[in-house]
Design a binder for these strands. Structure first.
Lengths: 239, 239
DNA sequence: TTTGGCATACTAGTATACCAGTTATCTCGC
DNA sequence: GCGAGATAACTGGTATACTAGTATGCCAAA
C-alpha cells in the first residue's frame, strides 16, 4: 500500500512553459506522482484507489486529486466506476499487440526521417544515452535503464523533426511498459536492448533510412513481452 | 458568440459501456458539446471562454465545465492560461504536416491489415458509406459529408482489427479537420474524395494490401489543406 | 503627453459541503 | 441453515465558497 505512509509534502514550484511562466499546478504534480507510481508498478494493477484517501495522503483536497485521476483514466491507467470505485487498471492484454503495431508504424517513420536528418551532434547524444544505458545494465539498475530507454526513443523522435509523435508514443507505450516491468529483469535482456540500440544508432549515423527502419522494427518485435506467460504468473494484473 | 443564447438543457441519459451500465456524466456531455462546437468552428480559434459563463449557459456548476475544458486542453483544442483565461486554441500550423505523417503511418497500417481481413459484409458496409457520402456531396451538405468521411476511415480501422488506432487518429485528425472546414467547400473536392474512397474500397475488396496502402497514402496527401493560403485568409485562426 | 505604479476587477485553482448512486452487510422470514 | 430484502456505509459526481494569481485601466508624477 504505497500511499499508506506517504503524507508527503507536495513541493509546487514554477516552471517556464513555451516562454510563458506557468505555475506547476497541484493537480499536475499529483498526476505525475501517481503516473510514476502506476508505471513502476508500485501501485499494481487492480489496486483500489479512493479520491479521499489520496487527498489526505498528499495533504490536499479532493479536487486536484480528482483532476489527476481523470487524466489518468483518459490514458487508460485507472478505471473509474462512477459511484462505485476507482482502481488501477489491469493491463489490457488485447491492447498490447495493437500498441506494438502502433509503435512499429510510428517509430518506423520517425527513425527513417531521423536517418536523413541526423547530425554528428545528434549521434553523439545517442552515444551518450547508450553509454549510460550500458552502465545501468551492468549494475542491474532496471529503473534507470528504463529512463534511458525512453530517452533514446524520444531523442530519435526529436531528431526526426516530429516531436509530437513522441507524445502519442508515450501514451501508447505505457501499457507495454507495465508488462515489461514484470519481465525485464530476465538476465541478458538489457544487454540485448543495448545492442539493438547500437545497430539503430549505426544506421542513423550512416544515413541509411531503410536499415534504420528494419533495425527499429526488429527491436520493437524483440521487446514484446510474453503476455501468456506473464498472465499465468500474475493473473490479477491482466484482463 | 454561440454560447450567448444557448441556455440549453443538458439531457443526461444512460448508456451501456462495456457491459457495465454507466451514467453519462454531465462533464462528459458538456465535453461532447464543446468538442463539436470547436471542430465545426462554431466556436472559432481564438475565441475567449470562461468557465463561469459556460456553466451559466448550460445551467450547471463550474465543476463539470472545468473537467470538460481540461479534457479539451489535453486534446489541444483549448489553451488554458492559469489565473488568466481560456481560449479556443489557434490551429498550430506546425502540427499539421506532422499530423498528416501520423495519419499516413497509422492508416497505411490499418488499411493493409484490412485488405487481408475484409469480408464481403465489410465491403458492403463501405459501399453504403460511400453511397451516402456521394449523395451528401451532390447536395453540398458538408457537415454530413464530414461525418461519413469519419465513418469510412473508422470502418477501415475496425476491419483491420485495430480499433484502438482509431482512437489515436481521432485526436490527431482534429486539427487537420478544423483547417479543412475552412477549405472543403471548394468545388469538386468532395467528389474527388468520394472517388479516392472508391479506389481504396476496390483495393480492399481485391485483398491487395499494397494497392490499398498506396491508395490511402495518396488520398491522405490529397486532403492536406493549403495552410499558407488559409493563413493569409484567416490570420487569426492559426499560430 | 508619456510613463510608471497601484487599485480593481477579472480569471482559474483549490477547498469544502452536499447529493445520488452502488455495494456489502445484517436482519428477518422461511 | 439459508436466501431475500432492507439498510447503512461507502463511493464518486456536482454545487458552492474561497484563494490567489493576472490583466487592465486609471491616476499621478515626470
Amino acid at each position: 500500500m504505497p500511499q499508506a505512509s506517504e503524507t508527503e509534502v507536495l513541493v509546487v514550484s514554477s516552471q517556464a512553459i513555451g516562454g510563458r511562466l506557468r505555475r506547476v499546478t497541484t493537480a499536475g504534480a499529483i498526476y505525475e506522482r501517481l503516473h510514476a507510481n502506476i508505471v513502476s508498478l508500485r501501485m499494481p494493477p487492480g489496486m483500489a484507489l479512493q479520491e479521499k484517501r489520496i487527498a489526505d495522503d498528499f495533504g490536499v483536497s479532493r479536487t486536484p486529486v480528482r483532476e489527476a485521476l481523470l487524466r489518468l483514466s483518459e490514458g487508460g491507467l485507472v478505471d473509474i466506476y462512477p459511484q462505485s470505485g476507482t482502481v488501477v487498471s489491469r493491463v489490457p492484454v488485447s491492447a498490447i499487440p495493437e500498441a506494438v503495431v502502433v509503435r512499429k508504424a510510428l517509430e518506423g517513420t520517425t527513425v527513417e526521417a531521423a536517418a536523413l536528418l541526423a547530425t554528428a551532434a545528434d549521434i553523439a547524444r545517442l552515444d551518450a544515452i547508450i553509454a549510460r544505458q550500458r552502465s545501468h545494465a551492468a549494475t542491474g539498475n532496471a529503473s534507470s535503464f528504463h529512463e534511458e530507454d525512453e530517452s533514446f526513443h524520444e531523442a530519435i523522435a526529436q531528431i526526426s523533426g516530429y516531436p509530437g509523435i513522441w507524445v502519442i508514443l508515450k501514451t501508447v507505450k505505457v501499457q507495454i511498459d507495465r508488462a515489461r516491468r514484470l519481465t525485464l529483469p530476465v538476465l541478458g535482456r538489457m544487454d540485448n536492448v543495448v545492442h539493438e540500440h547500437m545497430i539503430i544508432r549505426d544506421a542513423l549515423a550512416a544515413h541509411d533510412a531503410t536499415a534504420a527502419r528494419d533495425a527499429m522494427i526488429h527491436h520493437l518485435s524483440a521487446v514484446i513481452p510474453d503476455v501468456d506467460e506473464l498472465r499465468s504468473r500474475y493473473p490479477d494484473y491482466f484482463c
